[in-house]
């Protein structure tokens, strides 16, 4: 199992565990972490699982690729930064054990 900590917009931290191969989106949804909607079902089609990767983790997670669907969708999201990613596009692997993701106030 791999650990992820979700930090809500009000600062509340929730540590959850997820199996390797699942994504950070599933980690939130399976554990009822509020703040991730994931309307499309996890196929990079809606931008309602927007997260800010903690700066210390961004290199391990990888930055947003600028010419793909994820960037096409995130360009319309609110409050994006250089650390923005879609949680459905972050597959969990052992090197990400302990990952910290910050949640925006709301998804849309």
């Amino acid at each position: 199992m791999i650990k992820i900590t979700f930090v809500a917009s009000d600062g509340e931290r929730r540590e959850v565990e997820i199996e390797e191969g699942e994504t950070a989106r599933e980690a939130a949804l399976y554990n009822d972490v509020p703040g991730i909607d994931g309307d499309c079902g996890g196929v990079c089609a809606c931008a309602t699982c927007h997260v800010h990767v903690d700066p210390e983790w961004i290199d391990k997670v990888g930055r947003l690729m600028h010419d793909g669907m994820e960037a096409d969708l995130l360009q319309f999201a609110e409050g994006t930064t250089e650390y923005s990613r879609l949680a459905c596009q972050i597959p969990m692997k052992p090197m990400l054990d302990g990952l910290v993701l910050h949640l925006p106030e709301q998804q849309y």
């Binding site: 909607d37 499309c40 089609a45 319309f76």
Partner: peptide, 20 residues
């Protein structure tokens, strides 16, 4: 359980921006 998993707003870059 997942009531927002529907097509009414479309998906992709043209997804309804007024959905919320």
């Amino acid at each position: 359980k997942n009531p927002r998993h529907h097509l009414s707003f479309g998906y992709g870059i043209h997804r309804c921006m007024g959905n919320r």
